[in-house]
Design a binder for these strands. Structure first.
Lengths: 194, 194
DNA sequence: TCTGTTGGTCAACGTCTGTTGGCCACCATA
DNA sequence: TATGGTGGCCAACAGACGTTGACCAACAGA
């Protein structure tokens, strides 16, 4: 993985670019959009604030570059339909535990419209297609995917952002034991009627 | 309800104080803590920014005064144990629909530590006691309350803050039909084991 | 060796922020 | 009619913000 997948030539400044992105993710994840200042990001990356502007144009561009992410959701065709719930929950948990991009995205999405738009895009492009394949009636897929995302993002919110102590202390396996049936239910159970 | 419940004397400036609080709630709910500037709040309340300082000390004090809230959760003793889930979900939905304080609290809690602390306090003082009375083993109450809050706050997040279209368009009754069993399950179902 | 490009620093700009203090108008009381 | 408090506006402060452009050092190809 030395060469990038794209054909972009290696530049001498790649290390600096990476340092900026890394610092940006950390500050956005910890502080949100407004309080993650370019000056603070530059200081953490040990470079001058003007470098951020040169490489990423402006703060919005930096944010966009910092939170590009692929959820790498499992292929629905590759797993039994009745295990989709557990697979989704454990996948989200591990993604969230070792990837601060997701926390950054959530923190920023709540107060910044570009961030919220990014989250809606991820929902549409990554979770919705999975729901369309898994749930019984494709017409219900958007609503079912929304329910799933409400439970998964709600867990991330209380555990990683608001840090409710009981939510933060729950063991991952216990979370999976509780949430997997819920998510499975939202995906495949018959519509409860109104 | 002309006289307040406390014995504080009526002041000529009470209308202004109310206008400030109202504008503050609206700005905090729409913009979050940092972007809800005192100047913007003052402009919306049609008064001078310095009045905000005189009446509420500083921005933190204004926020604290603006988001003081009682969830008015139903008394667990007054409802059948197996209807707690539905009661909680419908109560939260109506509270959230016509009270922008909750949106303000959520938006601010995500990026401001005082806001997060306030949310933890509400969780501890209002949801946790209810869980202690409803769920079978009081020792599990914190974890069960955390699960409930993850689902309820997750719904608020996707519906009112991030505004995922399918989540925002769901009919309240349909939300209740889906979420009530989940919440009921988190509160009273036997522990799923690890 | 000369030259153009690239990586990087420094100092400053205009603007916006929370916050402060001075000043004026009103109103109740004496 | 004087007087003290209350409600309100105005102008300014110091600091932080995103952003810009001038300037310097190192390296590549001729």
């Amino acid at each position: 993985m030395n060469k990038s997948t794209s054909a972009a030539p290696a530049r001498r400044s790649d290390a600096t670019r990476r340092a900026i992105l890394e610092a940006a993710r950390e500050r956005f994840a910890a502080d949100g959009y407004e309080r993650a200042t370019i000056r603070a990001i530059a200081q953490q990356a040990k470079i001058d604030p003007s470098m951020v502007m040169r490489y990423y144009g402006n703060k919005e561009g930096l944010f966009a570059a910092a939170v590009a992410i692929d959820l790498k959701l499992p292929d629905p065709a590759s797993l039994p339909r009745d295990e989709a719930g557990r697979a989704l929950v454990t996948h989200f948990l591990t993604m969230w535990e070792d990837n601060e991009v997701l926390t950054a995205l959530l923190r920023v999405g709540v107060t910044n419209d570009a961030g919220a738009e990014r989250m809606r895009g991820i929902f549409n492009d990554q979770l919705l297609p999975l729901a369309r394949r898994v749930c019984p009636d494709p017409e219900q897929a958007p609503a079912r995917a929304a329910l799933v995302s409400s439970q998964l993002l709600g867990l991330a919110l209380t555990r990683y952002v608001l840090r409710f102590p009981p939510a933060a202390q729950l063991h991952p396996e216990e979370i999976a034991a509780w949430l997997a049936p819920t998510v499975q239910h939202y995906l495949t159970a018959p519509h409860p009627g109104v």
